[in-house]
Amino acid sequence: MFENSDGGVRIELRELTKRYPGQATPAVDAVSLDVPAGELVVFVGPSGCGKTTTMKMINRLIEPTSGEIRIGDEDVLRMRPDDLRRHVGYVIQQIGLFPHLTIAQNVGVVPKLLGWSKAKINDRVDELLGLVGLDAADFRSRYPRQLSGGQQQRVGVARALAADPPVMLMDEPFGATDPITREHLQNEFLRLQRELRKTIIFVTHDFEEAIKLGDRIAVLRDGSHIAQYDRPARILSAPADDYVAGFIGTAGTLKRLALITVEEARTAGDGPEGTAGLPEVEATATLREALDAMVAHGTEEVAAVSGDVRHRLTYQDICQAINSESREVEPSGG
């Protein structure tokens, strides 16, 4: 249905508005936004600002009052809603698995509706369960009640990916999980997105989550007015106004550390001799994680490890990296 040559498609919102009868002000007021193909855009803002309503209008779970929605070259408002939803993945906090269906049947719901053969559905179920870190032989015959919350959330992501949709909408998908499970799910989802490059709109009220996951962030205020729409680093280093600055909070520098990996900031290789006895962090870890390791071990150095390669990272390297990032952050809209 949608052109899907590189993993995702562009989404365009133009003057998108939702008015409910009897309400003086719109729930969503003339939102215009471009989501580049293959990027994950996070809608973040306080409860009641309209972020979920905006997202649900994209797959027409809520019908817009006025405005335009385009996915690729398609005018969404001219499509049959059922056809649209079969080509847009949707993941919610409550997961929404069918309790009377097995995990395999849950994942295969949309492919079955699309008329896929049984063999093709079975292959896709096994592929996707493996992709989200669940062993198909162990999980495909289980029922949702037999899974933990984190495992159910993984199945929800697998189900949303089943028909290989170019677009995914995710509404607080990890919000109901405990902090450790949530971090693990976020990391796994980032791994998936690096591989699949879907076009994703992700709703959260958690700015830390927005920074970690988003290629771009739309900071929303009441009525889904966009206070700022930009790369995470740009929002952290140059908030558009006091509202955005207040949303970021006082720990902007620490938040920026979560955007830079140890590999990106490391110095020249020191080898095993130069790093002997130092606490270790993965080269793919963030500078925030490296700083946490330094504090925990009472040292100003760690060993960055990537396979058999080891490099030394110092506290001064972290300071230099964050200062360089502040100077070199790409311009707004880049």
Rank of each mutant, 00 (worst) to 15 (best):
W116M: 04
F189K: 08
E127S: 13
E188P: 12
G89S: 02
L114P: 15
E208V: 14
L161C: 12
A160W: 05
A162M: 02
W116Y: 11
R85A: 08
E209C: 13
F207R: 14
F207Y: 14
L185A: 10
E209G: 07
G108I: 00
I211A: 04
H184N: 15
F207V: 13
Q105L: 04
Q193H: 15
H87G: 07
A176L: 05
E188G: 11
P144C: 06
E208C: 12
H100A: 01
I201F: 07
N187P: 10
P179N: 07
F207H: 05
D178N: 08
R140Y: 04
L213E: 00
P165E: 06
N122Q: 10
D178Q: 12
I92V: 04
K212A: 14
H100T: 01
E188D: 06
G175L: 05
G175D: 09
E209P: 15
V88P: 03
V157L: 08
S117Q: 13
A176H: 04
I121C: 00
H100M: 02
T181C: 14
V167S: 02
G150Y: 02
R194E: 13
Q193N: 04
Q105P: 08
A104E: 14
Q94S: 11
A104S: 12
R86G: 09
L97N: 05
R124P: 15
G89M: 02
Q186K: 13
H205L: 08
R191P: 10
I211L: 15
T204M: 03
I103C: 04
A119Q: 10
I92T: 01
K112M: 13
P144G: 07
A210K: 02
S148T: 07
Y143P: 00
L131F: 14
L213T: 04
Q146C: 09
R124Y: 11
F139R: 08
V88F: 08
Q146I: 04
V125Q: 00
L101W: 11
I121R: 01
I121G: 00
P165A: 10
K212Q: 11
T181N: 15
I201Y: 13
G133S: 04
E172A: 01
P144T: 12
A119T: 14
E208Y: 05
K112A: 15
L131Q: 15
P99K: 05
R85I: 01
R159Y: 13
G133P: 08
P111D: 00
R142A: 03
I201H: 06
V88Q: 06
E188K: 08
G150N: 07
D138H: 15
R191Y: 05
G133A: 05
A176P: 14
A210S: 04
V203A: 06
P99W: 04
W116E: 12
E209T: 12
L128H: 03
D164G: 07
D135Q: 13
V107D: 00
F202C: 01
E188H: 07
G108D: 00
E188L: 09
M170S: 08
D178G: 13
L192Q: 03
N106D: 05
D123C: 08
A162L: 02
T177L: 14
R197W: 01
H205T: 02
H205N: 06
P179D: 00
H205Y: 02
L101N: 01
V91L: 09
Q193P: 01
I180K: 10
S148Q: 09
G149S: 07
L128A: 02
H184Y: 07
F98Y: 15
V155E: 00
G149M: 09
L169F: 03
K120G: 15
K212S: 11
R159Q: 04
S148V: 10
G96T: 13
Q93E: 10
